[in-house]
Every structure is written in structure tokens, then in C-alpha cells.
């Protein structure tokens, strides 16, 4: 049996864990919030802390435990491993079940993959973005468990970024450069960002012109973006700028097919941003509605 601990703070990752668990065999999903579309057996607990994790682990004695490489998963997994002494693999991007688990971990800053064979029982901390969350959706069978253990760590306050977002932490960043033309087009970029649940950012010239606040600057004298997707619109890709782009996927739109930004892009689109954006936004709106 696989025991999945849902992610408390970035709940959407939970679906990805369920998608993986499904492939590994029987599973139960432990969550501390209401989910109405998780596929399979769901155990609803009041709180998710290490004492609860330990209790459920002892109760179900799973062959594998899955956590997300996310704020609560990265705290609870090693604690459990420390207490129980069972093997733990982190940064997992692929996992198969068999006599032993076969895991692949992404390490050395993404430069190295390592294939591992892991004895059962064991713990896995799974990276985001490798399993389709939709596969984890379905109809849940919810069981409520009344476990409310005192914890040595207590959340006292959640601080949202003041008025402006922190682009360095955002998963999706829509970034604009000089190729955007004039200031009015910033609105189009903002709209695209909204449609993709992302935030808007810019290269230095845009910030210097006062079209976006300084907090939105990407690059050496601005911030480094580390999220999942970085969409560069009309950015040529000067060294100073590229230094601040550490997102996993870069999508670049530029009229110049030799623009250096394409060298770090996964997908490059040779087009004029100002022509492309209205069409793209229209299409995304259709899908949304």
C-alpha cells in the first residue's frame, strides 16, 4: 500500500501525487483540507503534522510513502525518515513499483539524473510537474479521522506579499522587453499573465521607463525567477537579463530569430509580440470560458 500525504500549502500538487500513487498500486491519500475531486480513498484529518504522519504511518504500515517536494512535504518527509530510519529518496521525478522501488531523482542542480533501487518500506519526495494532475482527479471516498496532536511547530500568521507580488517565487512569469513597443501593450501582457495564473515582469528598459515597478525587474540588478515557466515577450536576452532567468521552462517570443534569448528557450516563437498577443489572448479566453 502506498500512503500519500497531501500538500497543505500548495494543494494542487496533491493531484500529481495521487496520479503517481495510482500507478504504484493501492493507495490512501491523507489531507487536512476538503478536497472533493481526488480519486480514491481519502483520509481527512484536522491537521497535518509530524505526529499525525507518524501515527498514520504506524497504523497503515505502507510499503511506500509519498510526499510532495513542497512546503509541508519537505518538512514532514525527512522527519518521518529520521524517526523511523526507513530509506528516503528526494527530488523524485519518476517512480516504479516492483520487488523494490525503482526511482529516478534529479540532482546536482538538474545536471544529473540518478536511477536508484530502494528497499521497502521507503519514503519518496516527489518533484512537481512530472505527473498529470488530471489523472489524480476523480471521486473521493472520504473517511474522517479525529487525530489532533499537539505540535512543536505552530502556524501563527500567513503573510501575503504586500500589494506587489514576488516574481522570484511565482510559478508563471510573463515578462516583457523593449519589443513590446509602447506602454499600452503592458496591459496585454498583464492580461496574458492573468489568464495563465501568472505574474507580469519586465527587463530593465521597461522598468527604467517606469512602465512597471522596480520589484518586477528580472535580471542582474533585479530578481531571479525560479518558477516553472518564464514567458519572454520581446526580450532580446542580454547577458544581464539572462542571469536572472532560472525558470524550468522558457518560452520566448521575438521577431529576431537570432535573438540570444532563444538560446535559453525551450520553445521559441518568431513573431511580433504586438501581433501575436491579441490573438493568443482571444484564444485563451475562449478556452477559459
Amino acid at each position: 500500500m502506498i500512503l500519500v500525504f497531501g500538500e497543505e500549502f500548495e494543494r494542487d500538487v496533491t493531484y500529481e501525487l495521487v496520479a503517481l500513487a495510482k500507478r504504484l498500486g493501492d493507495y490512501k491519500v491523507v489531507v487536512s483540507e476538503d478536497f472533493d475531486d481526488i480519486d480514491g480513498d481519502v483520509i481527512r484529518v484536522e491537521r497535518l503534522n509530524w505526529k499525525v504522519v507518524k501515527e498514520l504511518h504506524d497504523r497503515f504500515k505502507p510499503e511506500g510513502v509519498l510526499f510532495a517536494n513542497a512546503p509541508s512535504g519537505m518538512d514532514l518527509a525527512p522527519k518521518l525518515a529520521g524517526i523511523t530510519g526507513i530509506p528516503m529518496v528526494t527530488n523524485v521525478i519518476k517512480l516504479e513499483n516492483g520487488d523494490r522501488f525503482k526511482a529516478t531523482s534529479l540532482t546536482y542542480g538538474g545536471k544529473v539524473l540518478v536511477d536508484l533501487e530502494v528497499d521497502k518500506p521507503s519514503i519518496f519526495v516527489v518533484n512537481r510537474g512530472y505527473y498529470d494532475p488530471n489523472e489524480g482527479r476523480g471521486t473521493p471516498k472520504v473517511e474522517r479521522l479525529d487525530l489532533d496532536f499537539e505540535d512543536d511547530v505552530e502556524l501563527i500568521e500567513v503573510v501575503k506579499p504586500e500589494e506587489d507580488v514576488d516574481i522570484s517565487k511565482a510559478e508563471v512569469v510573463v515578462s516583457v522587453g523593449r519589443g513590446i513597443g509602447d506602454e499600452s501593450n503592458i496591459e496585454l501582457a498583464k492580461e496574458l499573465a492573468e489568464l495563465l495564473n501568472g505574474v507580469v515582469a519586465g527587463s530593465r528598459p521597461i522598468i527604467d521607463q517606469g512602465w512597471l515597478p522596480k520589484s518586477r525587474q528580472v535580471g542582474r540588478s533585479g530578481k531571479t525567477v525560479t518558477g516553472k515557466v518564464y514567458i519572454a515577450l520581446g526580450i532580446s536576452g542580454a547577458t544581464e537579463h539572462v542571469e536572472g532567468v532560472k525558470a524550468k521552462n522558457v518560452i520566448a517570443v521575438n521577431t529576431d530569430r537570432d535573438a540570444p534569448i532563444f538560446r535559453i528557450a525551450k520553445v521559441g516563437v518568431v513573431a511580433d509580440v504586438n501581433e501575436l498577443l491579441p490573438v493568443l489572448i482571444e484564444k485563451l479566453r475562449e478556452i477559459k470560458s
Binding site: 522587453g177 523593449r178 528598459p205 547577458t239
Partner: peptide, 14 residues
Amino acid sequence: IPMFEDALKVTGLD
């Protein structure tokens, strides 16, 4: 070179 190229973009003289 990078200083002026950046400045050209900021001033719209690129």
C-alpha cells in the same frame, strides 16, 4: 557597449 545598448532601449533610440 552593453551600457549604451541598454540606454538606447530605455530612451527608445534603439
